[in-house]
Design a protein around this nucleic acid. Structure first.
Lengths: 292, 292
DNA sequence: TTCTAGACCTAGAAAAACTGAGCCTAGTAT
DNA sequence: ATACTAGGCTCAGTTTTTCTAGGTCTAGAA
């Protein structure tokens, strides 16, 4: 009759996850957002882990928590462990559904750049189940459930595949263009801008070395496609990104009063998840790059 | 107002753990034992994971499960992930309580070899909080909550620190020894043996090249210390392991009728957990080795 | 054929996690 | 100085998840 004493128990995995998230993001509240629970739940997990270990992992302050020495010492181990765990999960997802591809991209890119290309893509890869998620921030591909990320990055960033350069140029409805004969006329108009790219106008003005008599009124939109729609309706003049307004310029719903495009120093890049170098996603990305 | 769509959810960590255990141990029941739950619970976890992935991981047979191709492909990732996770947990435990040391060893070693040495050890390391667990099988030090494992291993095994050689030699109570003048007398006696080492007698008989007229009666004990106690009470003759009977030989409660010790080819080895090369445990092991 | 080991299934019970509301603290603004 | 605020903690009650018990099913062994 073999002796089988209860083995020393390990702490609950969910508590470890809560600790890792709070430590990585630097706060209980941020961790709670990532884990889609309330901060109280995360606090309880962390407390449970600290009770298990018999020692504190965080210093508590009125404005947030910081890792203490023990926490600081433990964090790298847990980061590595959860990295590996998520990699394993993503690989499993990919192997279990090799025809499903998830693309994460900016809302504007999703609607104005990717969407028009989807029919061609679906035709070229009829077996693929492609889904698109619009995110404002690029996801961590190793951890989150996306296979491809398409975002704006500095030209100088390493890796990834360039899909388009980012050039900006004012655009407006054809009717409005008549009022814009010379650059100085711009100052009299309503400037439309995307709240994600608040500095587009300043950059264009600076690089074209325009001297404007006074600052114009501006309106911000949280979605580029909204601003674009307004521009087409003649609401004002929009700072256009070439890869986003190309279609509208081609169909004539927008025109560019000046032919002075300016590079923002950024590019649209597609990145693949590590460990997904042989599947459907790389072929899909190559097709996108070729079509661009 | 930033768009924050719900990120694609990852599967429950506990389901991953159930899968990993079942795959590693080759069965739902074995995994359930390791996780201290019923097989049904493990089966449900695995099913949940398979539902999440949308694909099966195991082939089900009437007698057990086997990994299918997807499971086989995914297992190494999860083994690595849980290895790392457990390493992280053990490091946390060690760093949180650097004075606590957990030793895992055979029940017999715990009672007859380690226990007599503990007072000296506690005197040499007064700050140490040493706990001992008696296991029949050596634990996986990277995963389970032990810092030191002391077990019998083949002489040829790599690593670890040798604490004692394993020699065997029949021993009995002094009163009984009078009936054993020559080896052939052994056959008439009751042989006591530990059920963990059923072959001790055969090995000794073979190596000493004794020709016994007939096979004696034997009695098995599940604990060596029980057999030893019985031997001291004169119940029969016990195959003694030197490091276990030394104390009894010294205090005279047991004697060895023949001076023909035989090496079993094994040694008592202490092993340390990876990542615990600087703490209290290594010093403790060195002290044990020095005392031996 | 019956027996058995191992897995699966389901309903109900037990345990864990989560929420919501209130409290606390220490910077910051008034 | 006082009020405000952000961020975290705590507690009770609720929801959700997980677990168990007991039964069923299957295929290989006796």
């Amino acid at each position: 009759m073999p002796v089988r004493p209860p083995r020393p128990s390990s702490p609950p995995l969910n508590a470890l996850r809560a600790f890792e998230a709070a430590a990585r993001l630097g706060g209980v509240t941020k961790a709670a957002e990532e884990l889609c629970v309330t901060p109280g739940a995360v606090a309880q997990h962390i407390k449970a882990l600290e009770d298990w270990a018999g020692a504190r992992l965080f210093d508590r302050h009125a404005k947030g928590v910081t890792l203490n020495e023990l926490g600081e010492r433990s964090l790298p181990d847990f980061l590595a462990a959860f990295d590996q765990m998520n990699r394993a999960v993503q690989n499993l997802r990919m192997n279990a559904a090799p025809n499903s591809v998830r693309i994460a991209t900016l809302p504007s890119l999703a609607q104005l750049w990717l969407s028009p290309r989807m029919p061609g893509l679906r035709a070229a890869f009829p077996q693929a189940r492609i889904s698109i998620a619009a995110l404002e921030q690029p996801p961590n591909l190793a951890r989150e459930g996306y296979d491809i990320a398409i975002f704006l990055e500095p030209k100088t960033s390493r890796g990834g595949l360039i899909l388009a350069e980012d050039h900006i140029l004012p655009v407006c409805a054809p009717a409005l263009a008549k009022q814009v004969q010379q650059p100085a006329d711009l100052a009299a108009m309503l400037w439309l801008k995307d709240s994600l790219w608040p500095d587009d106008w300043a950059m264009w003005v600076q690089k074209t070395q325009l001297a404007l008599p006074n600052l114009p009124e501006t309106v911000s939109y949280s979605l580029y496609s909204l601003a674009l729609e307004e521009a087409r309706n003649g609401a004002g003049i929009l700072m256009g990104h070439d890869f986003l307004v190309q279609a509208s310029l081609l169909d004539g719903s927008l025109v560019a009063p000046f032919n002075t495009p300016v590079s923002t120093g950024k590019v649209v890049k597609a990145r693949l998840r590590d460990g997904d170098q042989r599947g459907l996603s790389p072929r899909l990305v190559r097709a996108l790059a070729a079509a661009a």
